[in-house]
């Protein structure tokens, strides 16, 4: 069985990402534990996801690479702040774990979940979906290239097919 949270962590390390900000999501809980335990990466808990865009921009101004981890609902909190990326051509990498999608049981998650991909694309991010564990590593590696070589903002979106739908049973 592929250990895909470890794959994300490993790619962030290999890409020399030094600041990872996040609003926690159950889909990324193990990844955040690994980041917290790492001495080279600064894990930054946020009050709201949009802070992570400014932090990534500031890190880049200072010569470091950063990433943002969030749940799909957090994408809605980021919309206007995404302006920073397009207007200034900042490199940007975010990992979005889905709610309101495959197998969702909470109706409150549906509106934002169904809009997440379209909103990211509308704001100019390159969006790459992952549905299978074995695709996580190559997709993360590809996203690092798009962010830091092609200098485009990119979102890796983790489907509920991959992370599993939350059970309310």
């Amino acid at each position: 069985m592929t250990d895909w949270p470890k794959d994300i962590f490993d790619v962030l390390k290999e890409a020399d990402i030094r600041q990872v900000s996040h609003v926690p999501d159950a889909g990324q809980a193990r990844l955040i534990e690994m980041l917290d335990a790492d001495n080279e990466i600064r894990a930054i808990p946020l009050a709201t996801e949009l802070e992570g865009i400014g932090i990534a921009a500031g890190a880049w101004l200072g010569g470091q690479r950063a990433a943002l981890l969030m749940q799909s609902s957090g994408v809605g909190n980021c919309i206007n702040a995404f302006s920073l990326l397009k207007n200034c051509r900042f490199p940007f990498l975010c990992v979005v774990s889905m709610r309101g999608e495959f197998g969702e049981a909470n109706p409150w998650q549906m509106p934002m979940g169904q809009a997440t991909g379209k909103l990211l694309e509308t704001m100019g991010l390159v969006v790459t979906w992952v549905h299978r564990p074995e695709d996580v590593r190559p997709t993360m590696e590809a996203a690092v290239q798009i962010a830091f070589a092609a200098m485009n903002p990119v979102a890796v979106v983790l489907s509920q097919r991959l992370i599993g739908a939350k059970s309310y049973g």
Binding site: R42, G54, L61, G63, L84
Partner: peptide
């Protein structure tokens, strides 16, 4: 100097990312 003319609410976060990346400055 790096100036913002949009992305309201982001200035302090940019400062944080920059301060962490450049701890000597």
């Amino acid at each position: 100097n790096f100036y913002l003319r949009g992305a309201m609410g982001s200035a302090s976060s940019i400062g944080l990312g920059l301060a962490l990346a450049q701890p000597q400055r």
